[in-house]
Design a protein around this nucleic acid. Structure first.
Length: 544
RNA sequence: GCCCCUAUCGUCUAGCGGUUAGGACGGCACCCUUUCAAGGUACAAACAGGGGUUCAACUCCCCUUGGGGGCACCA
């Protein structure tokens, strides 16, 4: 039972547009003892590492029904990585055979998501390629020809059953606790009669599934998956609007496009035998199937808009980095030894589509956030500053003049680089640098911990700090020396004094390092704010 | 109801018949420290249950249970 898994590879792909130099086709020694097609059920040792079998042609084939979310994007990431790993091609095909579900604009959004992630494709809906078009609604003739061949060979038949009858049938089957499925009524119509009626009557075309026997599909990850044919019904391959269903479009297109590995969600596993049957009936070599599990929501269950199933573009808006998303999504559902942070170029080297986990993984937003922080911190400072600038251009109030002062951003970037996980967290950390006027917070905010109920002492301490600042060069080093000295001289814990100053100068209790911040803000505003705070605390002391 | 897939710390995973079951996130404690972070160190935390196979099972097989998915003129 060895489907012609390598046939697609042997055919090669003439004239394929390449966006990068072809990788040398290293011979992987493991390939010799572990050919992909021969894995046995339960014998994982035979496919510990996917053998290097030559350049793979893989595709990302989304339906234009909205923006891609993390689940489908991980699919794209894995496919892309595998294509790059083998020096093969990654293609993007749009599966728009259901006109009613189409959401305008989603194709562009899908491509935009891939571009943002840095997943480049060699052939696709927008750029064409040797097997164009890459949009299924533009490939109808191919499906019609295939359907006709199946009709001619007796592997398919026209079905004239009305939707109402099918609904009633389904209801009855459910009521009788039988498996729902087409009962094969139109199978009995003589081919000549059927063909005649088909010329004038609305109909669908159904595949004639053998009633006996079983169909085995070889899955790269699990080995053979066997399904009894009697559990399959005569499924529709061509709808009454003459559009194909996925069951027909997939074998036709993946054969036409020389796809070597079909990677898809494991919700397709139960119907994989249908596809295998079509490949066989059409005389097409079967591709290598890789069914991988979906990503679950934190509480269990399917990922939804409420639970982490944000679209990729939303992650972009929230200030995540493409590299972090790629790394994170790649390692959810797959692991590489003790490694966690694996940069893209490294992923291309080590990612193994055949070693993916078979149990569904849960989306761990905390880990993603942490990882994004790691990537942010690892960015060269100038690059980080660019990201921050772009973010701030958008986030800062309109009163702040644009374009933003790059020198200022360059000055505070090192102060916040270890304090943000998401770009969205930048604004609250730096907005006081942009405020014309930082109002003194209410006295209670100063009078916490050591200062509780001691407004007069707090005011006095601020007075000491102000005095210590007199004539000091306004650099972070000089400020620190002066203020530490002041604290020591007054017998104060540095933290106690600095917290008052921090709140007075920035209006916040949590800020980037104090002296560097003061140096950036400048002497005049700092002193003004310190005086204002001192005065406020004094009047609070009198009032109390 | 029927069918398919699946099962190691809370989460993502490593493990390929003999291990003190490893790492990461998160948690907790401590260190560093002007706040918050970042960083460092330590700790707690898992083989779902039951049968086999074997000298030996987390690893192989079966069953149960749990989880996921499918049974459309949707993909």
């Amino acid at each position: 039972m060895a489907p012609h898994v390598h046939a697609g590879l042997e055919r090669g792909a003439p004239g394929v547009r390449r966006t990068r130099a072809a990788r040398p086709a290293r011979r992987d020694p493991r390939a010799a003892r572990a050919p992909c097609g021969d894995a046995r059920a339960g014998d994982r040792s035979a496919r510990v590492t996917t053998p290097f079998a030559g350049p793979a042609r893989v595709r990302f084939a989304p339906s234009p029904t909205g923006e891609p979310h993390v689940g489908s994007i991980r699919q794209a990431i894995w496919a892309w990585l595998y294509a790059r790993h083998t020096g093969g091609q990654f293609l993007v095909r749009i599966e728009d055979t259901d006109q009613s579900r189409e959401v305008p604009g989603s194709i562009e959004r899908i491509l935009e998501s891939l571009r943002w992630l840095g997943l480049d494709w060699d052939e696709g809906a927008d750029i064409g390629g040797p097997y164009a078009p890459y949009v299924q609604s533009q490939r109808l003739e191919g499906y019609h020809a295939a359907a006709q061949r199946l009709l001619d060979s007796g592997d398919a038949y026209p079905c004239f059953c009305a939707p109402e009858r099918l609904d009633a049938l389904r209801k009855q089957q459910q009521a009788e606790r039988r498996s729902p499925g087409y009962d094969g009524m139109c199978r009995a119509i003589a081919p000549a009669d059927a063909a005649a009626r088909a010329r004038s009557e609305p109909h669908v075309v159904r595949f004639k599934v053998p009633r006996e026997g079983a169909t085995t599909v070889e899955d790269l990850l699990r080995g053979p998956v066997v399904v009894e044919n009697r559990t399959l019904d005569d499924f529709v391959i061509l709808k009454s609007d003459r559009f194909p269903t996925y069951h027909l479009a997939h074998p036709v297109d993946d054969t036409a496009m020389r796809i070597t590995h079909v990677t898809r969600g494991d919700e397709w596993l139960p119907s994989a035998p249908r596809h295998a049957l079509i490949f066989d009936a059409l005389g097409y070599p079967r591709p290598i199937y890789v069914h991988n599990p979906i990503i679950l929501a934190p509480g269990g269950g399917k990922l939804s808009k409420r639970h982490g199933a944000k679209s990729v573009l939303e992650f972009a808006d929230d200030g995540y980095l493409p590299d972090a998303i790629v790394n994170f999504l790649c390692i959810t559902g797959w692991g590489h030894g003790d490694d966690t942070i694996i940069p893209r170029h490294e992923l291309i080297k080590v990612f193994d589509i055949g070693a993916v986990s078979l149990a569904p993984a849960t989306f761990d937003i905390d880990k993603l956030n942490w990882m994004n922080g790691v990537y942010l911190r690892n960015l060269p400072e100038a690059e980080l500053a660019e990201h921050i600038a772009a973010r701030l251009e958008h986030d800062l109030p309109i009163e702040v003049p644009r374009p933003l002062d790059r020198a200022l951003i360059a000055a505070f970037t090192p102060l916040i680089r270890e304090r943000v996980q998401l770009l969205a967290e930048v604004l609250p950390l730096v907005e006081f640098f942009y405020a014309m006027d930082v109002p003194t917070p209410p006295a209670e905010e100063f009078l916490t911990r050591r200062w509780k109920g001691r407004a007069a002492d707090a005011a006095g301490s601020l007075g000491i700090a102000i005095a210590a600042l007199d004539g000091v060069a306004w650099t972070s080093e000089a400020l620190e020396v002066a203020l530490r000295g002041a604290a020591e001289g007054a017998g104060l814990a540095v933290g106690d004094l600095f917290s008052l100053i921090r709140l007075a100068v920035t209006g916040k209790a949590v800020t980037p390092p104090l002296f560097e911040s003061m140096a950036i803000v400048g002497a005049a505003p700092c002193l003004a704010r310190l005086h204002a705070a001192e005065a406020a605390l004094r009047s609070a002391a009198v009032g109390a």
